[in-house]
Amino acid sequence: MRIYVNEIKITDDSIKCYTEESTEGLQEAGQMLVDSDNYSFAYILDNGQSYSYLIFVQETWSMLHENKGKKIIINDNLELEQFESEFNYILDNIQGNLNYGKEFVSVVEDTFELE
């Protein structure tokens, strides 16, 4: 299932993300994927039987970047403890890697100020 982050609220210490779909019973799987065709990042969540994809579309990227280092909390009940390390890993992998597509790489590098 694809679960889209459709609202973000920033607090002093966290990025609170909200979705229309319930995330009850889901846990982070600690892995991030890239959908370069649709300009989004998908963080994998697991309910013990199947995976769901928490989708961060391009419109959410600047908030993630500007609030880097804060806790990521989904629907007020699911803290993504491995998100930052996985996200940093994927950004390092994208930087200068045209396998993701030149335009996608350019947008990611600009948004996240990668050099």
Rank of each mutant, 00 (worst) to 15 (best):
S52I: 00
N88L: 13
A42E: 15
F41Y: 10
S22Y: 06
L78Q: 10
D46V: 03
N47T: 02
A42P: 00
Q49A: 10
V105I: 06
N77E: 15
F104K: 04
G101E: 02
S50L: 06
I94H: 07
L45E: 07
L64W: 05
M1R: 09
D12I: 00
K71C: 02
V108N: 12
N88M: 10
E113T: 07
N97H: 04
E79R: 15
E115Y: 04
D13W: 06
E84F: 03
V34Y: 08
L45M: 01
I55Q: 09
T19K: 02
L78S: 08
S50K: 14
I73Q: 11
I90L: 11
I44A: 10
L78W: 03
S85L: 04
L98D: 15
L114G: 08
C17M: 05
I8D: 11
E115R: 00
S50D: 12
S36T: 03
Y89D: 12
N77A: 03
E81W: 01
K70Q: 08
L64K: 08
D12N: 12
G101N: 05
D76K: 05
V57I: 02
Q58S: 02
S50Q: 10
M32H: 03
E28T: 14
Y18H: 09
A29Q: 14
F112N: 09
I74G: 08
S62W: 11
V34S: 14
G48H: 01
E113Q: 12
I73S: 13
N38M: 04
S52V: 03
L78N: 11
Y53G: 00
D92T: 13
Q27G: 05
S22G: 03
L64Q: 04
Q31R: 11
N67G: 06
K9T: 14
I8K: 13
T111E: 14
E24G: 07
L54N: 08
I72K: 06
S14L: 06
D110H: 12
K70R: 13
D37I: 11
T111H: 04
I94K: 02
T23S: 06
D110W: 01
V107N: 11
F87H: 13
Y100P: 14
F83Q: 03
G25P: 14
L91G: 09
